[in-house]
Amino acid sequence: MKRFRFGLLGLNIVILAALAACSSAPTKEQSGAAVEDRKPGGPPTVVDRPPVVPVDPATTRPLSPDQIGSAALRDPKNILSKRSIFFDYDSNLVKDEYKPIVAAHARYLQQNGGTKMRVEGNADDRGSREYNLALGQRRADAVRQMMQLLGAKPDQVETVSFGEEKPRCNEAAESCWSQNRRGDIVYQGE
């Protein structure tokens, strides 16, 4: 976990270090958030990294551990920012091209045991709304099952379905339907 955070979140850690430097009395949240090998209440650790853009303390606020983690989840260059798994018609099979995404999120959950997410299943709009809700549920369940196999705990992933109610695309064409047959990953608090 620690190494993972350094690798992905070095930027934030440095920002926090800078924050800590600006503050004579860093909050517990700050000190506990950024750094490894820390006893609760211990001093902030300055991380030796290249300099970063200074942060204006006036625009910053204390971050909880989850919020710090979510920076990686939002970083467009990080695979964790990829949140949608698309499915074939009438299928809940996670295709090979999406397995790395599921695996990355499973690893993140494993490394952040207190983190929870929802997988929201979706379906295209042909046929019964309730049956489509169940098809979306099955897709969400398939994603969850794969995450569990890769180390996520059962209570970290809630699966729900929006069925056909939250389409990304509203045309009656396969190019559109294929965008609506998906599972979306949403972390708690997002």
Partner: peptide, 9 residues
């Protein structure tokens, strides 16, 4: 009702 709490629908 239909629930997914125990898996599936």
């Amino acid at each position: 009702v239909v629930l997914s709490k125990d898996g599936g629908s």
